[in-house]
Amino acid sequence: MKKSLIALALAGLSLVTLSAQAHKPYLLPSSTEVEPGRDGTAWVTVDAAVAENLFDPDFTLKLDGLVITAPDGSTLQPENVGNGKRRTTFDLKLAKPGTYKLALVSANVMGSYKDKEGNTKRFRATEETLSKEVPADATEVKVSRMQSRLETFVSTGTPDLNVFKPTGVGLEMVPVTHPTELRAGEQATWRFLVDGKPAANQGVSLTPGGVKYRGTLGEIRQTTNDKGELTLTLPAAGAYMVSTAWPNVARVEGQPPQMVPRRLSYSAVVEILPQ
Rank of each mutant, 00 (worst) to 15 (best):
R214M: 03
L76C: 09
V34P: 02
A200M: 02
G12D: 01
T216Q: 07
T207I: 15
K132P: 00
A199C: 10
A22P: 11
P36Y: 08
N83W: 13
V154L: 06
M173C: 12
P166V: 01
L5M: 15
T88G: 07
V141R: 08
D226W: 01
L63Y: 06
A250C: 00
M110W: 00
V109K: 02
A49S: 13
P175T: 07
Q187W: 05
T120Y: 03
E271R: 14
K96T: 15
F59R: 08
T75D: 00
L232K: 00
N108M: 08
L182N: 09
G215C: 00
S144V: 07
V105H: 05
T152E: 12
G65Y: 08
M173K: 11
P274F: 00
A70R: 08
A22S: 15
E253V: 11
L104N: 12
G196Y: 07
E117C: 03
Y113S: 05
F153K: 02
A245E: 06
Q77G: 01
T158S: 10
A125K: 08
L92K: 10
P25R: 14
E128L: 10
A95H: 12
D226Q: 13
A188P: 09
R145A: 04
P57H: 09
I6D: 08
E128C: 00
T41V: 15
A237Y: 03
S148P: 01
R262F: 04
L102Q: 06
R183Q: 12
